[in-house]
Design a protein around this nucleic acid. Structure first.
Lengths: 129, 129
DNA sequence: CTAAACTCTGACATTGATGTCAATGTCAAG
DNA sequence: CTTGACATTGACATCAATGTCAGAGTTTAG
């Protein structure tokens, strides 16, 4: 699959896909003509990348998380202490973000529930965005 | 309290505090000399703002969420349908971010647990950042 | 009183994530 | 073969979030 299809399926622009590649987050193969070639896994990966970036992680961090997932098959991955420290630190940051977002979610949810538009909440469940 | 103390206590730069004000997120009073004056609530608010921004919400959204919280005291707040729609939409976005971050959190957590540095996890609980 | 530390405003710089445009190549359909 | 859609690279533009600096006033410590 070429970049246009990938981008459409992942819901981003081709430009962004190239940017992610430039940041080392994506490594498509190339066809003889120089076109980038993607497969199904790349679609999922781009969606994941965009989600993390959207959630406030800098691409540098996204890269590390994805590398972890890639290496997740290893049973007992080796990991120098310094890297482990970094990850533990990042983990804390992520947990803080989750806590912050959860609070916002509750705020909005409660608010909608108390307005005359509570129906929107169940609507969303029926037909998720 | 003046901007310097506020900034220190909230863990951000004075510059950022002024920026948030400029974005309509903060409305300090002024002393006779023109200095901005803050109270305890402002400290919490700035921390909250920084957290939301850090978590990937644009200031425009942060503003709306905070306004909601401010008005949360109202029992049956009125809310035009269009605004409610917007909020419902944002709620979905926030939920997606939470899901994405949660997955990253699990990835990192599992990874650390499987390395020889699992101890870092419990360390963090003892002495949170 | 003076010097250091802080504040104000306003302008300019930067970084990260994207968009856009240009010049060129490729491919598929008519 | 030609035209239109899509690809490539690279440069430039933009927007939000911040940093930094300058010039001027204020406050506080010595």
């Amino acid at each position: 699959m070429k970049i246009g299809e990938l981008a459409t399926r992942a819901g981003v622009s081709p430009r962004l896909v190239r940017y992610y590649e430039q940041q080392g987050l994506l490594a498509p193969t190339r066809q003889a003509n120089g076109y980038r070639a993607y497969d199904e896994q790349h679609v999922a990966r781009v969606i994941r990348i965009a989600g993390l970036v959207q959630a406030g992680l800098p691409t540098r961090l996204v890269k590390e998380v994805l590398e972890l997932e890639d290496a997740a098959a290893d049973e007992r991955p080796s990991c120098p202490r310094t890297v482990a420290d970094m990850l533990a630190h990042e983990l804390t940051g992520i947990e803080e973000r989750i806590a912050c977002l959860s609070r916002s979610r509750d705020t909005i949810r409660d608010y909608l529930a108390r307005t005359e538009h509570a129906a929107l909440l169940s609507e969303r469940e029926a037909a998720p965005a």
